[in-house]
Design a binder for these strands. Structure first.
Lengths: 148, 148
DNA sequence: TTGTAAATGCAATACTGTTGCATTTGTATT
DNA sequence: AATACAAATGCAACAGTATTGCATTTACAA
């Protein structure tokens, strides 16, 4: 959950791209370093404003290919805005293990991926077959709770 | 969960609007009858294509006011598309009890609100305070499971 | 160093959602 | 039933989000 646990050097980002047969371009390295530096998911608007010299279309394509490769996952917040977060090590190509809890802070709008939370299996009505669960919680994050 | 349980006549829709101090207009009655006729949430594009003679802006405003009044609730599917569903009787104005399970069928794209599913309380990390939970499951619905 | 496929940037387009304003409509009141 | 007024609708315009095609540039393997 903390930044240090995910901190990576440029070399490690390059390795990551190589591992997924992706060319090491400046734009991709910057997207990776921005997302790894945070412990929350990054919204599409945030990505765009910080990486504003990267073409918007390029950004979409980078995010899409990262998602396909299982490097990041997309999560919609409670307003339907796309947010992107680095996948935990359990994620694999085309099959994300994003069955963790997504916490939406109603104050700072942060989206936290709480990987450590395990939630129990949920029984579905007859006939329904689930291949994945995602739990969204909304409320105040640790930081915003203190300030209230 | 079945249609009959929610089936209503035009008179009942009129009562519903009156109860919430909303004028009984043709557009509103048609939106209500469309949503009550289904056992899945209705996507924004579906609403628009079926009710194509109602202005798009009017539709947004109707959906917004219905949501504010607690008549319907909005749920984003796993693609970030807005879907609308009739609230269960537990919903109240400005305070939805939409803590039920939303099931996304990956085949028919249907969004099912499984009100009868109760999921256990989930413990959050220290400092986080949740005021609401939503659980999304994706997979095959009962109908699509049979066809595979 | 060079050739080539991949990646990027740009233009154009479609979809989603919002705001302001003029017109129409529902309904409470006389 | 007629009227008066607020609410609801339709239209135009606009902003944000996402996709596609194509020309150019870049990464990297030979």
């Amino acid at each position: 959950m903390n930044n240090m646990a995910q901190a990576k050097s440029t070399y490690q980002f390059e390795d990551l791209l190589e591992k997924h047969q992706l060319k090491k371009t400046g734009a991709r390295l910057r997207v990776l370093s921005m997302m790894y530096a945070k412990n929350t998911a990054t919204s599409q608007p945030d990505l765009e404003s910080v990486l504003n010299d990267i073409d918007r279309v390029t950004l979409y394509r980078i995010l899409n290919v990262f998602e396909e490769k299982g490097i990041i996952h997309k999560v919609f917040d409670l307003n339907g805005t796309a947010n992107y977060a680095v996948c935990s090590s359990g994620c694999q190509e085309h099959h994300h293990h994003d069955e963790h809890l997504h916490f939406n802070c109603t104050n700072c709008k942060g989206v936290f991926c709480l990987n450590e939370i395990k939630f129990p299996t949920i029984n579905l009505p007859a006939g329904f077959h689930a291949d994945g669960f995602t739990v969204y919680a909304s409320g105040l994050c640790a930081k915003c709770s203190k300030m209230q």
